[in-house]
Nucleic acid binder design. Structure first.
Lengths: 199, 199
DNA sequence: CACGATACCGAACATGATGTTCGGAATTTA
DNA sequence: TAAATTCCGAACATCATGTTCGGTATCGTG
């Protein structure tokens, strides 16, 4: 027996409603009742599927996961060699990210933001882990490196949205890559000279 | 006329109570009433001083600010030259951070964490800005660089607490500096060879 | 098509947190 | 000591959360 069509309709309606509302106002300012009204779903029905607004968000992120997976696959086929894959991936990611600006804004500073960030980090871990072939040992532990990459990604797109929304995805991605690849050093002292960016 | 002693007593009692509770349980699981009971302060009194739990936390961070300021001053006098100041600062910071592990844990994933992170970033901005003498132009915009540093700091101490609490402050700080200075590159391709860590 | 199973509705209810009000008591400053 | 300020605490209004349950609609299946 296949999955009852009513449940998929109900759930997607709730997912859509939540995203719609996040685009309109701040995540913390959205009540379960708001989602219910937007989705035209009964109260008891909601709690039959999810135990909270946070869980609704979390489960809805399987869509994000699908997007990331698709982007990853595209990067896989597009890249020349295995080493270039991650870069093709993040490049594509920056192209897509701009479309979700209002969602990012609605999530900023909330528990929801952490939920999304965690999902992103988990996906990165999975993807990057899948191509960890004969890599030389690194001084920075792998899980820390991945957390670092994910947080840097968040830092860049947040700054991009809040401070310099005029930048193109390519420019933002360039900054991201620069930070991940070479760091920046603490102001006052250049990091090791060979690593300074050009100019 | 000086500030009424009753108000400072009340406020510090509330600050202390909040921190005490965060050490015991998760920030989200703490109600205003809990803080009131712990601090032995009347309900109406609380709302005469703060409009919410979040504001209480935010205002209580003036203490954090004082700690950071003190650490900064110490780094100022300790460092040989101006360029070494930031590093003396972060080194000292990692020494202190271990003492607040349970507070970090109680805040992780909450709005409170964002409040603290923002305060930290603001302080970093202020400090690092104060020594931004004749610095060469950098390819990465200054405010992005500072945000990047702050987020990297958070990423490292979070990973340190959750995954490798056995590490010494010096070891953790070494990883932090490595990331900030040289980045890490995306797995699969080394970042520019000259920048790889030793070994 | 028809029947059994399942999901949805919606109203009602319990619970608990938030934030306000106000008169009287206590403490502080001057 | 006197005036001003702050605190207390109980009562109250409001709101969001989460649960219960009987009736209804929709679904999958034979």
């Amino acid at each position: 027996m296949a999955i009852d069509r009513r449940v998929v309709r109900t759930r997607t309606a709730l997912y859509d409603a939540l995203v719609t509302l996040i685009r309109r106002r701040h995540y913390d300012a959205i009540s379960v009742q708001d989602v219910l009204d937007e989705a035209n779903v009964g109260r008891s029905t909601f709690y039959a599927h999810f135990k909270s607004k946070d869980e609704l968000l979390e489960r809805s992120l399987e869509r994000l996961r699908a997007l990331l997976e698709h982007t990853w696959q595209a990067a896989l086929s597009e890249a020349d060699d295995a080493e270039a894959i991650p870069y093709a991936y993040t490049r594509a990611l920056f192209e897509h990210v701009a479309e979700f600006r209002d969602v990012q804004a609605g999530l900023s500073g909330t528990r929801g933001e952490r939920i999304v960030t965690t999902a992103l980090r988990d996906n990165l871990t999975r993807f990057l882990g899948s191509i960890a072939g004969g890599e030389p040992p690194r001084t920075v532990p792998r899980d820390l490196a991945i957390g670092f990459i994910a947080e840097t990604f968040i830092a860049v797109i947040t700054w991009w949205r809040e401070k310099r929304p005029d930048l193109s995805p390519a420019e933002a991605e360039s900054l991201f890559r620069q930070l991940v690849d070479k760091g920046v050093g603490l102001p006052g002292r250049p990091s090791s000279p060979a690593c300074r960016g050009v100019q």
